[in-house]
Computed example of a mutant assay.
Amino acid sequence: MNHPEIIVVGSTNMDMVVKADHIPVPGETVIAGSFFMNPGGKGANQAVAIARLGGSVAFVSKLGNDVFGKQSSQLFDEEGIDTRFLLSDPEFPSGVALITVDKEGENSIVVAAGANANLFADDLKDALNALKKAQLILMQLEIPMETVRKTAEFARANGIKVILNPAPFSESLSKDVLKHIDVITPNQTEAEMLSGVKITTMEDAEKAARIIHDMGIPDVIITMGPEGAVLFSGGVVTRIPATRVTAVDTTAAGDVFNGALAVALSEARTLEAAVAFACDAAAISVTRMGAQSSIPYRNEMIVRMIK
């Protein structure tokens, strides 16, 4: 088998999605319009995005020995993802996410980690040693922080670039992890938590990006939803606008962004061009319902005539 250019280390979930008029407040019951299940999990979504957008990707994850785990594994094979290093947990079930989507396309998500919480650093030894010729490792924070730290250390020692999507944000994200990260991609909320800057404008995002950069991370990309993204690299701030679309569901938009970013960087695009490509892929995804069901294919990437 050819060596994949990108390794995704992360979570796999089954998403249970309810479409409702609005997201309920505590104590409120809302009658929903529709319900469906869709494969998800930040790691899985990003791996699928990479595969659909033309990248060569291996996925390292831990699934439950249950129907959700078996279904997810089969789907990864169908997407052309290298699944040699998927693990099965004999004790814990596959992760699940309960998602409510309102009429504006915004969502509220609760995740039960299941087997994802048991993806330990020792589980990754064989995979990382076999995949050390990869260009990039992409991670998120739905797996244990120690696993993220040790994977990032391995990557740095072997000259592999690390992209960290710090989602969902964790207070345990320390300097010991950040010092091994090459590119970090927080959204507006995560950037606020990392930097301590309240972000309401693009100027605020630029300030936050500089602070995060000063934590030792060379390249900072703050995603700003429909406003696009703020990139801080080489001492220069660049704003990359998003393509205007009508959003129906923002679930997995950040995952699509990160997967697309990894693909573009693996193709030796400039960071600015890679962020523009990622913004376009995310824009397509929010016009569709679901997580993996919303992820575009490479031949759909004509928003800015990027192919």
Rank of each mutant, 00 (worst) to 15 (best):
K70V: 15
K70S: 09
Q71V: 12
Q71S: 15
Q71T: 13
Q71P: 03
S72T: 15
S73M: 11
Q74V: 10
Q74F: 06
L75N: 04
L75E: 13
L75D: 12
L75M: 13
L75H: 15
D77S: 11
E78T: 11
E78Y: 09
E79I: 07
E79M: 03
G80L: 11
G80C: 08
D82H: 03
T83P: 01
T83N: 12
L86A: 04
L86N: 04
L87S: 11
L87M: 11
D89M: 02
D89V: 02
P90E: 05
P93H: 12
S94A: 08
S94P: 09
G95D: 07
V96C: 12
V96Y: 00
A97G: 13
A97E: 04
L98G: 14
I99N: 09
V101K: 13
D102T: 10
E104G: 08
E104L: 14
G105I: 01
E106R: 10
E106F: 06
N107T: 01
S108L: 02
S108W: 06
I109A: 11
I109H: 07
V111K: 05
A112I: 10
A113Q: 12
G114L: 06
G114E: 01
A115C: 02
N116V: 09
N116W: 05
N116D: 03
A117R: 11
A117T: 01
L119P: 08
L119R: 07
L119C: 07
L119F: 12
F120R: 12
A121K: 14
A121Q: 07
A121L: 01
D122A: 11
D123S: 13
D123W: 00
L124N: 08
K125N: 10
D126M: 12
A127F: 06
A127S: 08
N129E: 12
N129V: 04
N129K: 06
A130G: 02
K133W: 07
A134H: 00
A134R: 00
Q135M: 12
L136K: 14
L136A: 01
L136D: 14
M139L: 07
Q140Y: 13
Q140E: 09
Q140S: 04
Q140H: 04
I143A: 07
I143V: 13
P144G: 08
P144S: 03
M145G: 06
E146H: 10
T147V: 11
T147L: 13
R149W: 01
K150D: 14
K150P: 01
T151L: 13
A152P: 06
A152D: 03
E153Y: 06
F154C: 05
F154A: 12
F154H: 10
F154R: 05
F154S: 09
A155V: 04
R156C: 10
R156F: 06
A157H: 08
A157S: 13
A157W: 00
G159E: 08
I160V: 15
I160A: 08
K161S: 15
K161G: 09
V162T: 09
L164G: 00
P166T: 00
P168K: 03
P168Q: 00
P168M: 02
S170Y: 03
S170I: 02
E171G: 11
E171P: 02
E171W: 07
L173C: 01
L173T: 03
L173F: 05
L173A: 00
S174P: 05
S174A: 06
S174Q: 13
K175T: 07
L178H: 08
K179E: 07
K179S: 09
H180I: 03
I181E: 00
